[in-house]
Design a protein around this nucleic acid. Structure first.
Lengths: 212, 212, 212, 212
DNA sequence: TATGAATGAGCTTTCATTCAT
DNA sequence: AATGAATGAAAGCTCATTCAT
């Protein structure tokens, strides 16, 4: 029997440290979400912390409790986007089947990520806005993904499921096509993320040309 | 026999009015070129007119002789990029053959444009940096091209040279893949504009998948 | 007996919120006063915010905590001047007696206002320095006063206490004579505001000419 | 018999030096007139030489052929205004009759001057816009006139035609009332300069109050 | 005499960040 | 943890003036 039964429950004006931590985490997440949306909608440079704060019904200075700088917020946005992409890559890598099938799995996942706010951050926010240090970090993320995709395509070429082609160029083409989704995707538009993914798989796998 | 032979040629210290105009034009073009390069390299917001000026060995104020504002420079960059794209579109439209062939022609042209400085401006510089008026102008450019590409693809679908597909999605895919070239193309890299164009034509027409 | 006696008074390092607000108000007022003085002394255009700030031992940017722009400071100066004038007008309107007596009351009040800093702003600072919107606001102030004075004079003409005359011209004459005080009044000069008021009442009522 | 008859008249492409000088003078006068109008209409600080030039269908640089600086143009405007005032003063001084009559004569003249462009310059353009040197010059003009008017009024007081009053205050009152004309006079308004002058004479001489 | 171009000095405003409370 | 206030470091733009032609 715990103390609770002996002493009775009551609402302490001091919150549980766990509550505290959870609340802090929730607020931090809210900052990120709102900031990411505004960065995507207006661009990083034109988003003022004062606006982010006012959308959160708080003050500029309060944001510094959760992030050490505006740039740190952006870096975290990139990190979350990257995290989602890596999941897709991982699931692609573990997909059974030939290289082409792994690539197709990647395409599906990557398309979905590009319709999310943090996914859009990866490509819609110009990493040249960052300081050199942060820029290198972010470019590292992108380079990693790039390498992984190249590997998948090379695999497909090797196993004959993908036509012989310049792997570097093919990688850029696939990534570019999908990255661009972040610029045109509209959640209220005619097709949802999954449908877009299927169409991209089909078009990228089989091309535009009709088979004779 | 003219006076020249009698009097002898000499270099007048007064320049021809035509020379004057040509010099002005040359300077204006230099401003544009340098500014476009810096906008692409650093982003518009982070490019300071003072830096542009100093690269041109002149002063900030002198730039205002040629352009009425920083934004006007950017708008002109967009315009020049758009101009090049439209030429490509026009040549695609007049290409003989089925829809697919026209689209292929467009791909080749558009790829080349995206390796040029002004072409890169179209996609690498965020149009949200612009004032509402200018933004609408620039978005109009992009919308136009979009419509034209959709038309070409729809034509191909209609004449059977392109597989039945969602025209809107296919257009975004093709444009996105090519737009992205502006982000990775390196003039000192392994492949030149024409080669990239050929590879894009092949990959976009026939897809990644090997034919069984 | 309250706690104070038990615990003893002490100076808290935390200031009362009311103090806070009062301090803010005091600072805002100080900005206005210093700015108004400098606007009157040097002209609006030639007064630099940096100078205003340095006279207040603060920084340019700090001024923006209290006012959104240089123009907003000026508009507030005009408003305060106008406020004082309106009080005078109101007291003139409620003065018992014939129209002439009301006008005389107005003259006294208006003369006093014109010897104050904010009063001077009304006429010494050129309202053409303002943006169109603010200009209209300020001109509205002036028009209002003008109308009220015309009404008082017309009243006097109607009740026979003022000689028949062109009301519009008479209004301009009276206002002009008093407005001009702002250009010559010197607080260290031989006559104070009240004395000036009396002399103006006398001269404007009875004229220069000796009675035969 | 002159050469003309012997040699015949012809239109020389080289103009007469006198023509030259006359043309120069005409252009200089045009600059002054346009500048004065714009100074009065928009304020000195907000009038750009480029605008003055463009109204004259010439260039900014060309203005420097006629005046050494923007300030020099303004000083000349003041000088022309002052000249007109001095004529009025002179005619007042030579008017036969008592002091009051001289003052009345001055009022008439000064009213007329204040409806002219250069006259308006004297009061509508803030002399604080000038550099210290030029400012002293201009203030000298104004002081002179002031002294002269004081003298006239004192004369009237001495000869009994003007009521005993504080001469300094009376001078300021008269001048202020008239100076203000420059702020409200409208050439398309209901009364012309002469009529305004008569009304001012009447009001300033006999006052507002009805005689009992 | 006239001009197109260039310039330098200046000024308001913005905003991320810090600090005292 | 939160806030109101303060700050410094820009940066774009303006405009009278100068200069080469």
């Amino acid at each position: 029997m715990g103390d609770a039964q002996v002493l009775g429950e009551f609402a302490s004006p001091w919150r549980d440290p766990a509550d505290r931590a959870a609340e802090r985490e929730a607020k931090r997440a809210a900052v990120l979400r709102v900031a990411a949306e505004m960065f995507v909608a207006r661009g990083y440079g034109r988003t003022k912390l004062a606006d982010v704060a006012s959308r959160l019904k708080t003050t500029k200075a309060a944001l510094y409790t959760y992030f050490e700088s505006k740039e740190a917020i952006l870096v975290e946005c990139y990190r979350l986007g990257d995290l989602a992409v890596r999941e897709g890559v991982a699931s692609a890598e573990t997909t059974a089947g030939a290289g082409l099938e792994k690539v197709q799995r990647f395409i599906r996942c990557y398309c979905e990520v590009m319709t999310t706010t943090f996914g859009k951050c990866l490509n819609r926010i110009d990493d040249r806005e960052l300081s050199p240090g942060a820029r290198e970090l972010v470019r590292g993320y992108k380079r990693d993904v790039d390498q992984l995709v190249r590997r998948l395509i090379a695999l497909g070429v090797a196993d004959g499921s993908i036509r012989p082609c310049d792997v570097r160029t093919a990688t850029f083409l696939v990534e570019g096509a999908i990255n661009w989704i972040g610029f045109w995707y509209d959640p209220n538009g005619p097709s949802g993320p999954a449908e877009i993914g299927e169409r991209f798989v089909s078009l990228l796998s089989d091309g535009l040309a009709a088979r004779k």
